[in-house]
Design a protein around this nucleic acid. Sequence first.
DNA 1: GAGAATAAATATGCCCAGCT
DNA 2: AGCTGGGCATATTTATTCTC
Length: 207
Amino acid sequence: MENRTHAFFNKKIGSGVTPRGGASVYQDEGIIFLRSQNIYDQGLRIDDVSRISNEIHEKMSGSKVMKDDVLLNITGASIGRSSIFNLDEEANVNQHVCIIRPNEKVVPEYLHFLMQSEVGKLQVKLGTTGGNREGLNFEAIKKFRLPIPKRKEQYEILNSVSTKLNDLHLINSKLINQIQLLKNYRQSIISEAVTGKIDVREWETKK
DNA sequence: GAGAATAAATATGCCCAGCT
DNA sequence: AGCTGGGCATATTTATTCTC
């Protein structure tokens, strides 16, 4: 391991492995085993998550996930997707998921927002290497150039951005709702026309 | 106790199965 | 036919043991 570490991520930066045997050692009960398919910018998706035995989890002690870790996909098409780990359960990760554990200068949620932003995605893009299948290595992650202001300011940015995001989500769901209402309306008009409830014989088709 | 040898852990690259 | 991503294979780094 090289000594040069990123000024802000120096607590931990690393990833796990696939346990010996791969899918054959997964089980329904046990420790959550996060793979790149579970990591989304919007949050973790663990409805179909695999689990591993406590024994394997202890063996892979180096890649145990801690609360508020920022998880970042570092290989394949899902590269750059990130989540905050906020579950109350123990969990582990495979080699496609990088654990970024920033130091106290960085608010994890802020880092997560940053990774979703243009700036973050650009850093991912610039750091990507590999031909057959692109990947980020840890050197590249350490070299990320990200704006890290004082914690107070990070919280302010966080508040402002999340308020705006909430507004957007609200607008979005309203639009989806309206689209559905219009579809329903269209369907009911069609059925009324077909059943003869409304008479459309006199209607002209407009160009 | 220094340095070599070996083992273990970790990081990275890429093949290919499964899905659409 | 193209894409996604899981997991194996290999390279590299770090830790441990051994020998002098």
